[in-house]
């Protein structure tokens, strides 16, 4: 069962809403959810804490905080009437992270997750497809940290390398590439993956700074 997209509309809340055509399921993607949007939502039972895996985001105040931050983006897949079955959230790196050394050039695809009850429907890909439509990304280096300790191998019935390849497939469609880095968290495990997409508007100087930063060298602009 794979999602088909109907015409999108802008809701009263200010989100861009993209209904998905799924048999027997009323589901829609809400993009750029603004602060205040999250008050009466609930999380589907397939998002939460499990034996070997916990959802990255489990409380709506985290979404609120992300949406309130500069250029913070929250996209939700909502089952009618108000149940969140998937989400993606993006933000600028915090000052404690290496990638913040390039200021607002770097932009993190911080979290994407689909409820265990709604997988294999193409929801994650649909969300990413819509997020990446924005011109905003052509002036950023968007990146994703793939830490294997966040991967739901039990729920997905995938092996580590299959899960890793799934992430590569998900993002490579939008020009993300795997880059090597000695960033300590990525380097902790060999299956961890750092992927990035350099926007067309990013200058050659900034590309060089990005390359150096991947190996711990900070260039002054």
């Amino acid at each position: 069962m794979t999602a088909r997209i109907e015409t999108d509309v802008t809701s009263q809340s200010g989100c861009r809403v993209v209904p998905l055509m799924l048999p027997h399921v009323g589901l829609s993607i809400h993009l750029n959810c603004p602060p205040g949007f999250f008050a009466d939502l609930s999380l589907d039972s397939g998002l939460g804490r499990f034996a070997h895996y916990s959802s990255i985001i489990q409380k709506f105040d985290v979404f609120e905080k992300i949406a309130s931050g500069k250029d913070g983006k929250v996209a939700l897949a909502i089952l009618e009437p108000r149940t969140v079955v998937a989400y993606a959230a993006c933000w600028y790196p915090s000052t404690s992270e290496r990638w913040s050394k390039l200021g607002e050039l770097m932009y993190e695809m911080g979290a994407i997750e689909v409820s265990r009850n709604f997988r294999h429907m193409g929801i994650a890909q649909t969300i990413i497809n819509h997020i990446m439509e924005e011109e905003f990304f052509e002036h950023k280096i968007a990146y994703m940290n793939g830490f294997s300790w966040h991967w739901d191998l039990d729920g997905s019935h995938l092996t580590i390398d299959q899960y890793r390849n799934l992430m590569i497939q998900l993002l490579s469609k939008h020009g993300f590439k795997e880059y090597y880095t000695n960033e300590p968290n990525i380097a902790l495990r060999e299956e961890n993956i750092f992927m990035a997409r350099v926007g067309e508007g990013v200058s050659s100087d900034d590309r060089k700074r990005f390359r150096n930063l991947r190996f711990g060298i900070v260039d002054k602009k």
Binding site: K177, E178, Y179, Y180, R211, N212, R214, F215, I217
Partner: peptide
């Protein structure tokens, strides 16, 4: 498909 991959030596030589 993912090659070439960029790395850097300890002394900063692009490889």
């Amino acid at each position: 498909e993912e090659y070439p991959k960029e790395i850097m030596s300890k002394d900063g030589t692009p490889i």
